[in-house]
Amino acid sequence: MVVIEKINKSFPGPGVNSNPLKVLNDINFHIEKNQFISIVGQSGSGKSTLLNLLGLLDSPDSGDIFLNGKSFSKLKKSQHPQYRNQYIGFVFQSHHLMNELTVLENISLPLLILGLNKREANKKAKDAANLVFTKEELQEKDILSQKPQLISGGQKQRSAIARALITEPQLLLADEPTGSLDEDWGEDVFKLLLDLRERTTIVMVTHNPILANKTDQMFGLTRGVIEKWPKFEDLRLSIDEMASKYNMTNMVCPRCRGDLEVSFIGEEEYPARVEIDICQKCFGIWLDRGEMEVIVRNHSNLVKKINLTQINQLMD
């Protein structure tokens, strides 16, 4: 179980005398063992910083993280690499495999760092590879002896996952694992992560709400503040519920068959408030696949895309 307790993190501001930039603000949440959670947020929202803290690559200004009861703050800095090696696995957006090594060598690297001899490391690497590659890939294509530049993007990412899994970590951190893959490979890799839930606790940072929605829990990170987001199924409220939940009093559609009116108050890119003025029939909300957007539609006519985060801010 992972417990994140009152984590704060700032970075120096851009100017000499500027105030520090607060990236994470009193972050509190916990993840149950073998849960697969996703963290969603805009660029610069602090997702990667949070992931770095969870992966012991960085230290918080205050607060603490516990992994199965072990406090990160009590670990000496010199213990971090070993702890990372044994208990935490990383999967990056770009696979970060080394082209100079074969897939097998890449997968076995963490164990070689741990001090295992090559034979043992290779044996375990093959076990890990069995989890992520098909028989065909392993036997017919002999993927393990290939150099990474000769295999597909999805296979590279699965190799990276095997590398992360080889030490049987208690926590697997995935930073946009499908970000650099096309749709099919992305789904393929995501399915693999879903299957791995039984083996380890997974934290995934993603921009893809569809994938995030399929995880056990979805957290939104906005301007350093984290909150648990409802699943999209829960978000599709009836207009009455919407009206009552978000206190939208003016929900009358003046021109049911005409154009939908969406008024922005403030700048269009970063509106302070959006007023939606449509009738019940005309109101629909769903997410465009692959984009973190709410599309407000009038009948079947697309009128405006609004960022989900913005909607949530408005709704709050």
């Binding site: 070993q82 990372r84 090696n85 990383f90 080394m98 690297l109 760092i113 741990l114």
Partner: peptide
């Protein structure tokens, strides 16, 4: 690559 090595436990 060095960063990856460090992230997977290289001291």
């Amino acid at each position: 690559h060095i960063a990856v090595l460090k992230s997977i436990g290289a001291t």
